[in-house]
């Protein structure tokens, strides 16, 4: 028994280390979010949120950029949701376990891991130049759709698979066709999970910068047409911070972006909570 540290002491030491690592991780989040909010919130007021930028954003508000963020995200979700949910239904209900399914899974895994700047390259070469959509909400939104799709697909697939088999058996036994069963029984039961997936995809679209750097343009006015250039919040923050245009406004923009993401996260969590409670509760 020639041990330097007894098992009991090493248990105590390691337990302290584990607690420490957990608390340190929480500290990191509080540090980043706290710092941004403390410095950014004083700038944020109604004029900042609903005002137009003056002097490239050196002063004035960020309203066009908020509009841009919502617009681009909306386009991305309109495209990504049907693709993601459709793919999820196909994987969960129609495809068996074959090579094609494995290929689809691997494909969506790659899509989920490709560096965003590579999406940016593709978006530029394909949407902006090849399809001639130009720097526009459409090009940016489509590029973001490709990034949001795997998130939606995976979350939706899990929630569709977790619908009890007895539901669909019950429906099929009544003579319903496969599609009727999916449409009337399985999808409604999976809706909360699917919405969670869509919101997660939305978060990915809202926070993305590199992929839209060379697809969405850099306009200072709010986009109206889908072919107008735009400037979502992250892009605006990047410009403000790296070109040294205005630090106070950079902090303000960062704070608005953080709050937006926090809201999305809280909404998702509440939904997931309610969903799990509902599934377990009865």
């Amino acid at each position: 028994m020639n041990r330097i540290i007894s098992p009991k002491n090493s248990q105590k030491i390691m337990k302290t280390i584990f607690w420490g690592s957990g608390i340190f991780t929480m500290f990191l989040l509080i540090l980043v979010i706290g710092y941004i909010l403390v410095n950014g919130l004083p700038v944020v007021n109604l004029n900042f949120i609903f005002g137009d930028p003056i002097d490239n954003g050196a002063s004035g508000g960020i309203f066009p950029f908020i509009i841009s963020t919502f617009y681009v995200t909306f386009v991305a979700l309109v495209v990504a949701t049907p693709l993601g949910v459709g793919g999820a239904v196909y994987l969960a209900e129609y495809a068996g376990e074959n090579k094609l399914v494995k290929a689809i899974r691997f494909g969506s895994e790659i899509l989920a891991s490709i560096p965003s700047i590579v999406f940016g390259l593709f978006g530029f070469a394909f949407f902006v130049v090849y399809l001639n959509f130009g720097f526009s909400v459409l090009s940016g939104g489509l590029t973001l759709a490709l990034m949001a799709m795997p998130t939606i697909l995976r979350t939706a697939e899990v929630s569709i698979e977790s619908v009890p088999k007895s539901y669909s058996e019950g429906s099929m036994a009544l003579g319903a066709s496969k599609w009727q069963t999916i449409y009337q029984v399985i999808l409604p039961a999976a809706v909360p999970g699917i919405i969670t997936g869509v919101i997660l995809g939305m978060a990915r679209a809202v926070e993305e910068t590199a992929a839209i750097l060379y697809t969405v343009g850099a306009a200072l006015q709010a986009p109206v047409s889908i072919f107008d250039p735009a400037r979502p919040l992250p892009l605006h923050l990047y410009t403000l911070a790296t070109e040294g245009i205005s630090m106070p406004n950079a902090y303000g923009t960062a704070a608005v972006l953080v709050i937006l993401i926090l809201i999305i996260t809280i909404v998702t969590n509440t939904l997931v909570d309610r969903y799990t409670k509902k599934m377990m509760g009865r």
Partner: peptide, 24 residues
Amino acid sequence: LLKPTIQGLAGIPSVIYGFFGLVI
């Protein structure tokens, strides 16, 4: 407490991390 913390860290936009790095 910790689960949402980790979600939060994952959700912070990369440009915010960059900005934080730039100013801190």
